[in-house]
Nucleic acid binder design. Sequence first.
DNA 1: GGACCAAAGTGGTCTTGACCACTCGTTGAC
DNA 2: GTCAACGAGTGGTCAAGACCACTTTGGTCC
Lengths: 244, 244
Amino acid sequence: MTGLANTNGRGSKQALVRDEILGMLDDLQVGDALPSERRLATDLGVSRPTLRAVIDELVREGLLLRRHGSGTYVAEPKIALPLTMTSFSEDMTRRGMRPGSRVVDFQCLAAGAKLGQRLQISPVDEVWVITRLRLADDETMAIEWLHAPRRLLGDLRREELSDHSYYELLRERQGITIASGVQTIEPTVTSPEEAELLGVPVHSPAFLFERTTTSEDGEVVEFVRSVYRGDRYRLVTELRPALR
Amino acid sequence: MTGLANTNGRGSKQALVRDEILGMLDDLQVGDALPSERRLATDLGVSRPTLRAVIDELVREGLLLRRHGSGTYVAEPKIALPLTMTSFSEDMTRRGMRPGSRVVDFQCLAAGAKLGQRLQISPVDEVWVITRLRLADDETMAIEWLHAPRRLLGDLRREELSDHSYYELLRERQGITIASGVQTIEPTVTSPEEAELLGVPVHSPAFLFERTTTSEDGEVVEFVRSVYRGDRYRLVTELRPALR
DNA sequence: GGACCAAAGTGGTCTTGACCACTCGTTGAC
DNA sequence: GTCAACGAGTGGTCAAGACCACTTTGGTCC
């Protein structure tokens, strides 16, 4: 074996390889390429599958990114996401980034049992399902699926979605004001579809947000499911013990 | 090849295996064992490393859990974690679970540059570093590292930590009341040490919380770093747009 | 100088196989 | 009836190898 001390008393080969690569990262900048997998495997005296398993981990953790046919690179650090109901656009603008949004799909279909329950409507009622990408400086940061009862929006054209936020449309068309909501957050990993839309590897760590929003009249006006890249985001909350 | 259709137009073998296993999960209860890896690999017509890669994913996602030498089992569903400053004990009690806490280490050492900055003290000032496990029904849910300036607590005995919360000690000894804090949250994966303390596999998805708490006088009184199991937790927030 | 093509180099997927370490169940001895 | 030992079966780690698919680079031709 070359490149690594033996494993006596120091854990697995994967652990040792991981330490070696993390050490290499100390001397690299964001965007720098690592040596190829085959070279690293030879240099560190391990098999390529063993090396790949370690790089898989570092990719999942957001430290590295891989490009098929090109190489393995040092990844960019994460963005903090304040856990408030400010809009994505406001957040990005505050950070000096150029926010963008792109509707990739919208369709109308029957709610079904589960969604009907979430939106407090009949399962046969229709809902708009709008799939949007949230971008910052032309890079996709999140995918959002908005589900809204059709009766709140009536007929809808793609341009209306691009020009207005959903909340604006609610106010203009129905005189409805948003009052409150409940949001759940859990760590997840990207599916193949999500990975493709986000431009990250499959099964990368990500935040899964699910939010149900209610109007001042207590009516559920939306259910939103979002996947935020775990390699570019972390949450920040301000805590007020006495206010809750 | 037996067990799987060929991969034409349907993605990789790993994707097909994943679908098969998810289908199997529909007919199993929490705690049920899956067939052994060798059996599944044979049944599904793939190699054992290929099968293991898929099971690795499902374990990371919290759907399965593995026990070395015993088998692979269906995992328990996740707990929602309200994102407020209520104590862990209150949360667990509200859920009908028996909260517990166990100090596994506590020591006093110089703050150093980074921690000194976080706590707004001199790097040579001493801080208590208290490592605790948070348990629910005797199962470890989180690890917590509390860093507090020694001058706020003076000399400290392990029993005092077990019998009182830190906030109680602050009030009793210094007349200090907690006012506010800032907390960051990001998805992470467990290190070997964290995995051992939590009883989960290495590199499992988890929440990493870091919180800096301030007294009414604007003084930083603690920095806490916590790792919560991603297979047992999700966050829930209530949202109030106009209050922020 | 630009376009195109081929080759080399990259990451991605998968197989076969070996061996280690842990757990559980069975059997035999006391 | 209990306990210990052993064997079988489990998950865990690793290697060697093959082949696929993508990207980059260099050379050639116009």
